[in-house]
Nucleic acid binder design. Structure first.
Lengths: 214, 214
DNA sequence: CCTACCGATCGGTAGG
DNA sequence: CCTACCGATCGGTAGG
């Protein structure tokens, strides 16, 4: 072992590779933005040379694309446990309220918002990346919610004629306002207001789709 | 007159100033983004020298801030005519449906979306500009809608216990999904789907806030 | 008011 | 000899 915990000089290089390199680069992009992140900085954080970084990713653009696509793949089925919980909830009001809080937490997470802003800002230059992000982060999760609402319709817990539309309505009732505020740089919405927004979303949702009066 | 319609060489400079300069610069930022817009390009489009441009705006950042604040001021009372129309509408369903379409058109306009993306992407570096944008473009318009809903409650056309919450709900039911898609670079949402979303928004809204069954 | 130019910094690549 | 890696520096361009 060299001094100061510096890497050994034998065998495999001590710098980060593969998934670890991607994680470090993601952190840099989230912290510093696309323009603010230099390949030098990514290489520095990963403990490798710029030449090594360029051997893994041919350009800064391809690194950015890889980061977003990796992120999207990880978040694709994020709502699944919460949807299973909704199907086994004793009370539909409680179940939906818990679900809205889960959706809020997922959408309004600080890193989720930063990644979303990056993708949106660069959607002109990276249309395919943005499309994949939209499909993986939003479309697939809302479709899964729609399927769950359809099942609750079959059980006659809810009356949902158009599950896709209902899923979008619940989603936007729960997160539209807070997402807009945080997207535009306002600080985190107070958790009491978030809770209140979630309850209000469920109330309105059940006025339309509830099998019994809410 | 010089050849090719080039500016005269006498009297006031032929280049743009003040509001016209701001409009030209705004167009550049909307077309090319913040990083993509150079001060050389702005000067070129305005027909002035870079030195003249820097005499009006001390930095690229201050030019950006001026553009966003000017834009925000122009859009502050954008919804007023539509809200007045709602108050004089014969039928509340028709009135609200028309309003949702107006909100959609205002929010989903291509330039509005580009400006929004610029502000969101730069909200870390320009927190005050982003806050002013949020206040002028969203808060003031939603507050005006809330006031209108409160008036409709007094008339017993609607039953609105919390006008602010109701205004947010109607807004996000109408534009949440389409705004999300377009923000993330998907093409314009089909107008039939937009219409359908607006009608669906009003239906859900009236299930909760309608004085009579919708 | 403009041309010319600067100090700084970037993404990307060379030699060893 | 090869693979993996690094110090140094390139061409080109940004704001000012």
């Amino acid at each position: 072992m060299t001094r100061d915990g510096a890497p050994r000089r034998r065998g495999r290089p001590a710098g980060l590779q593969g998934g670890e390199l991607l994680a470090v680069a993601r952190r840099a992009f989230l912290d510093l933005g696309l323009a603010g992140t230099t390949m030098n900085e990514v290489a520095r954080r990963a403990g490798i040379s710029k030449a090594s970084l360029y051997r893994e990713y041919a350009s800064k653009d391809s690194l950015f694309a890889a980061i977003v696509l990796d992120w999207t793949a990880r978040g694709r089925d994020a709502m699944r446990p919460a949807l299973d919980a909704l199907l086994t909830a004793d009370d539909i009001v409680d179940g939906l309220t818990t679900l809205t809080h889960t959706i809020q937490a997922g959408v309004l997470d600080e890193d989720v918002l930063r990644m979303r802003r990056l993708v949106a800002a660069e959607s002109d230059r990276f249309p395919d990346v943005a499309a994949e992000y939209l499909a993986g982060s939003w479309d697939s999760n809302i479709a899964a919610l729609a399927e769950t609402l359809a099942e609750l319709d079959r059980r006659e817990t809810l009356v949902v004629d158009d599950p896709q539309a209902a899923a979008e309505q619940l989603t936007w009732l729960a997160v539209g306002g807070p997402l807009n505020r945080q997207t535009l740089g306002a600080g985190r919405v107070a958790s009491e207001h978030l809770t209140r927004t979630g309850i209000d979303a469920v109330t309105t949702f059940l006025h339309r789709y509830g099998a019994v009066a809410a």
